[in-house]
Amino acid sequence: MKTKLTTLTLSLIFGITGSSALFALESLRGDEPLTAESSRPDKFRQEVVEGGFDRSYEKQPPLIPHKIEKYHISLRQNGCLKCHSRKTAERENAKPTPESHFITRDGKRLNRLSTRRYFCNQCHVPQMNATPLVQNVFEGD
């Protein structure tokens, strides 16, 4: 009897939440039928900020405050190092890659960038002037 009741309640709960989720379901295309042409997405511009963005928490990888379309990161070349390597940064008025970027995951200090930091925009990203699709309530310290 008890199990029956639980099953019933459970299925009721799932039924309700499931169906309400079903009604709330909306694709990124909105109500447009699949066969129609999708509407043009809004255009956004990158935010270019002198002096850089404030960080939201201590160990946040700082956001990129400048354009980066011109710089390629490939097996052969890392365009970011033109200005952010130890030797070039001062001349370019940029900050060099910090100490943390030379340390391997086993804690060894290398003389060159650690490979896990090679692809800069895995962690450092530019910002668009778009309104967030989802509110972010994270509070850093």
Binding site: K70, K87, T88, R91
Partner: peptide, 19 residues
């Protein structure tokens, strides 16, 4: 450098500090 084509593999920005 490298505004129109990919840079050569041997290019090292640390050896190319302006001046």
């Amino acid at each position: 450098k490298g505004i129109a084509h990919r840079l050569p593999e041997e290019y090292d920005p640390e050896k190319d500090i302006p001046g």
